[in-house]
Design a protein around this nucleic acid. Structure first.
Lengths: 250, 250
DNA sequence: AAAAAAGGCTGCATAAATGCAGCCTTTTCA
DNA sequence: TGAAAAGGCTGCATTTATGCAGCCTTTTTT
């Protein structure tokens, strides 16, 4: 739970592959979107690339906030330790997404942990430099503000879903979320998660997820072979929750 | 659920008392904090004062977003319609706070409703003018960004609380939240809410709140006379949840 | 002050969710 | 390839939460 600065130092050395934001292909990345700005362009050269192996943790809950990560390539799980040490997954992220932004605001310490779900490359920006760029470029700041505004909307949609949907609905919602974000590969969701991880996202227990998944299988709403889970008909599955829940899109 | 523009037009006429942000006493208000900036100062003259009587609704869920409200004086309840028409209270707000900011981001329509809990005066800023000011003044935008970042942290703390605390803990958490925000008056919380409203905030039912309140009364953790609820010893009550929940401060 | 309405309370039946325990299946690694 | 480990599955007992119904109390209205 202490500073993970040393860790990051080590990781940094491993790679300076130096993919510039200029030539980066993540069109949805906030940096890329604002690269036309001189301030952002200059700032983008200050980034450090960090390689993480599958399973490696690069943010520790409770460690001081030093900067911001963008995912250049890979998949990440963001979680925090809840009551009784129960793990709560806040979200999953893929290339182009920001990690560690919750450390802004008044917080001095990360309120979440982040771990790579597969080999992942991160772009790291120091907090000081970022703050400088933000105070200079209102348009860039405005974009980041909009990002936060949208994250807030999503988070509140989640409050609504957790407090008013049944466990079954929440599990379905989780399946749809992961499927939407990572897409399908050979008919299966392009990310393998354990039942426990689904539970930690849906806010329930492993057993409950298992039970519900096996029912969904029998109803032919999902297919599952071990950790591989597929959704043959997204619309059909969506219908299971959308009856009372129109605009849920976490 | 349709546009409430006409409504607002009507309300506007009622008052042009014209309290300038310059002389306003809400030191915590985002406008006031940034009033040193010429851009913000100029912008602040564009505000309209709106008077709302107790019980009056000034934002309707689903109506198009036209602007932003700040509370000059009074108390407000922010809520949305959940599953089965069940009301979900998102938060309570008092003077200096922003209402309707969730309408920024990608949203074109308000995702929440807002109603005055007592006679309330609002400062209204049009969205267009605000956007202009934001794009001009990076420091102002940065402040609003931080505000969103903090709101996000709070919202996620709420996700955690709802998904991992028991109903009893959530009710206690709600009591502490309302007490913290509105303070005490003559030994009672300075805001009278119905059991139903406590339930809609805590994400449970009216009966559950009633049951838990009467237990808490027997345990001398709260006092209650009708709608008046008091917390004799905040620390003691806090202890009921803080055992497994250290940093919850929604 | 009396009547009406709104809000609050409680017991009971039911439903939903959980935790445990034992067993089965898939994956990993030597 | 075979053993060990990790992950997945299911029935059962228990806990937690809910909804209903009837009654009581407080507040508001006339």
């Amino acid at each position: 739970m202490q500073s993970n600065t040393e860790n990051i130092q080590k990781m940094r050395k491993k790679s300076m592959s130096g993919i510039s934001c200029n030539t980066c292909e993540n069109a949805k990345c906030l940096m890329k979107k604002n690269i036309a700005s001189k301030i952002v362009l200059d700032f983008s050269y200050e980034k450090t690339d960090i390689n993480c192996k599958k399973g490696q943790q690069f943010i520790m809950e409770g460690a001081p906030v030093n900067g911001l990560f963008f995912i250049l390539k890979g998949k990440v799980k963001v979680f925090r330790t809840g009551i009784n040490g129960r793990e709560q997954i806040v979200r999953f992220a893929k290339e182009g997404e920001i990690i560690g932004h919750r450390g802004f605001g008044t917080e001095e310490y990360y309120s979440i942990s982040a771990v790579a779900l597969e080999n992942t490359t991160l772009c790291y920006f120091s907090k000081n430099l970022l703050q400088y760029a933000l105070k200079e470029d209102a348009s860039f700041t405005y974009d980041l503000m909009l990002f936060y505004a949208n994250e807030l909307n999503k988070s509140e949609a989640k409050v609504k879903s957790i407090s008013q949907m049944t466990v079954r609905e929440r599990v379905i919602d989780t399946l749809l979320y992961v499927n939407r974000k990572f897409g399908q590969l050979n008919g299966y969701i392009n990310l393998q998660l354990s039942r426990k991880e689904y539970a930690d996202y849906a806010g329930t227990t492993e057993e409950q997820v298992i039970r519900i998944l096996s029912v969904l299988k029998k109803e032919n709403l999902v297919i599952a072979k071990g950790k591989r889970i597929g959704i043959p008909d997204v619309k059909l599955l969506k219908r299971e929750i959308s009856e009372h829940n129109f605009y849920l899109d976490t």
